[in-house]
């Protein structure tokens, strides 16, 4: 058996409300709130970035299970906001958990799918017997251009997973990936903000790939939506995952626990993974969980997990994901938000 042996999430405490962004641009906040199910989004603090959030998520995973760092054979950080354009984030994480030097590290990028890619690759390496444990991270401090629709959703957060063969809390039952070349969203080199294809990001991009990956995973495993307790999808907003879940035959109850975009926005590479941690916080033994990510460009990774009874000895040792989502929040006005996210030209 190969699966998740521990997990951790991290969401910064800072939030900005959709109204407070809309107010600055004379936009209609209701269209974002009712139309896209977005209420507020998480904002990384001035001293936070993909690396610091990745490490805190990792440390939460280590609080849940004391994994010998010498046995961690791979560390992958998936993000579209690595603090360095050249110089890995993953080496810092590996060094911080003392998994160096006998370790394979890489930074991954595939728009919002980079996080599940790291999970996919560590799963493959553990399954092949090449490493004992792999650390898979998805994290982002994503940026939307001021006054762009993305500004209402681009958020910050991280999730980390140790993948191994012993003391598994969620077994990986099956995976499925699909990819096409679909330029729905991109950021050119040296550009600060991404561009996107507007409504083109919907049907030919998100819905096509998420639906395909989900459908193929169900077909491959012979599992019906009714047998799955929780379904988790990538959440560019609150609306898309609800619509795609309906297309795949899931009820609202099955996606409710993992639907975090209305509260924290789109955490990009961390989006589906943070939702997975929220589900693991409440799941019961033998529950089936389906997770489908989406990365613009475009592709989806789908996973089917089965929760084991090891979850009960593991999950209470670190802060729950929902406590990060709901507690000790600090609301920023647009000025502070602009300062925190480096939108002010100082020199």
């Amino acid at each position: 058996m190969v699966g998740i042996t521990s997990y951790g999430a991290y969401v910064p405490r800072y939030r900005i409300r959709v109204e407070d962004i809309a107010k600055e641009w004379g936009a209609d906040s209701e269209s974002y709130k009712r139309g896209l199910f977005l209420n507020e989004k998480s904002v990384a603090g001035m001293d936070e970035d993909t690396i610091t959030m990745s490490l805190e998520a990792t440390r939460n995973a280590l609080r849940r299970a004391a994994i010998d760092p010498n046995k961690v054979g791979a560390v992958y950080v998936g993000s579209e906001s690595h603090p360095y354009a050249v110089k890995p984030s993953s080496t810092i994480i590996a060094e911080a958990i003392n998994a160096v030097p006998h370790c394979h590290c890489a930074d991954l990028e595939f728009a919002c799918k980079a996080g599940t890619e790291s999970l996919f690759i560590t799963y493959g390496l553990v399954k092949a017997g090449l490493i004992t444990y792999g650390l898979a991270i998805g994290a982002d401090t994503s940026q939307g251009a001021p006054n762009d629709a993305l500004e209402y959703s681009a958020a910050s957060g991280a999730a980390a997973f140790f993948v191994g063969t012993e003391n598994i809390v969620a077994n990986i039952e099956a995976t499925y990936s699909c990819t096409t070349d679909t330029p729905d969203f991109w950021r050119r080199d040296n550009q600060v903000y991404p561009r996107h294809g507007g409504r083109f990001t919907g049907t030919p991009a998100y819905f096509k790939h998420v639906h395909l990956a989900g459908k193929m995973l169900l077909e491959k495993t012979g599992v019906t939506p009714a047998e799955i307790k929780y379904a988790v999808f990538h959440q560019p907003n609150g609306k898309f995952p609800q619509r795609v879940s309906k297309m795949l035959g899931f009820s609202k109850d099955q996606i409710k626990a993992g639907l975090l975009a209305p509260s924290i926005g789109n955490t990009y590479s961390a989006s589906s993974l943070i939702s997975l941690t929220a589900v693991l916080d409440i799941a019961e033994k033998d529950d089936l969980i389906m997770m489908v990510s989406y990365g613009s460009g475009a592709g989806s990774d789908a996973f089917l997990f089965r929760v084991t009874d090891a979850i009960y000895q593991t999950r209470d040792k670190a802060k729950t994901t929902m406590s990060y989502v709901n507690e000790r929040l600090v609301y920023l006005d647009y000025g502070l938000y602009a300062k925190y996210r480096d939108k002010i030209i100082i020199s």
Binding site: G45, D47, D49, I51, T52, L55, A96
Partner: peptide
């Protein structure tokens, strides 16, 4: 204690990480 970005060496230099 958590790891945070303490300062940077200008726009192009290294990022100084450390505990806060």
């Amino acid at each position: 204690l958590q790891m945070r970005k303490l300062s940077t060496e200008g726009d192009a230099g290294i990022i100084n990480y450390g505990y806060k």
